[in-house]
Design a binder for these strands. Sequence first.
DNA 1: CTCATGACCTGACGGC
DNA 2: TGCCGTCAGGTCATGA
Length: 278
Amino acid sequence: MPELPEVETIGRALHLQLVGARILQVEVRQPRLRRLVDIEALVAGCVDRRIEAVRRRGKYLVVELNRQRCLVLHLGMTGSFRIEPAGAPTLPHDHVVWELDDGRCWIFHDPRRFGCVVPASLSLDDTGRRGPLPELGPEPLSDGFTVEDFHRRLSRRQAPIKNVLLDQRVVAGIGNIYAGEALFMAGINPRRRAARIGRDSCRRLHRALREVLTEAIACGGTTISDYRSVDGLRGRFAVHLQVYGKPGENCPRCGAVAKIRVLPMAGRSTFYCPRCQH
DNA sequence: CTCATGACCTGACGGC
DNA sequence: TGCCGTCAGGTCATGA
């Protein structure tokens, strides 16, 4: 579910809520997430440590703990966090519960169990990666994401641009919704081979990605059904979506001239306007 | 290396 | 009402 704006929203909320708290204990109710939770390592990595920061990298969250440890978290499709008073009743699919020293507990909830909770040592390698994060491309909202570098990366790929945008090694944090929205904004057909995106189109796509992600973060993300931030609030970007989830509707740019179409690409639904996107 | 496909899970929804 | 197929915001392993 969550893409960069949703993970950013959740990460900011967790940072505000958790920094300064000390973890008294951690309970793993269901270790069988996408990667099996190593309970021993999680307990050793968490208990009696203070939470110092929560940061985002791509769609991952890194919770920094004192004494050089961290937690690497991913929300998969349906992961969420909430914070409750200690002893509050838990729900089905509450898989990990951290008890804090201030009378609250922090809960990881994930019905589909595509998320992960991985304890790691807090160390930077020479590429700036933390712990067991996979190889990730540049942060699209950072200065390190330049048109030149983006164009170079695209020029090596023969796959459709839509699929390449979903490759986290090319640029980090883009998922199905924002890939489709950015391609619409940039007027690029999702089936276009990435290597055949010219300099001008690449510049438009670069700008579109930054614009859509920035606006979505300002809205607290996009809620289609499940997604909620830590406080339980919905993201408000859904009303700004131009094409995602709107097959058969009039294109918002060319009006009634063309209808939005949907086609499967790499197993995911892709929405686009056949008239406006080339 | 690149690329496409299916697997991993649960729940919601529509058709019959 | 209930059963079945399909679909869902993500990643990862596998084989061509």
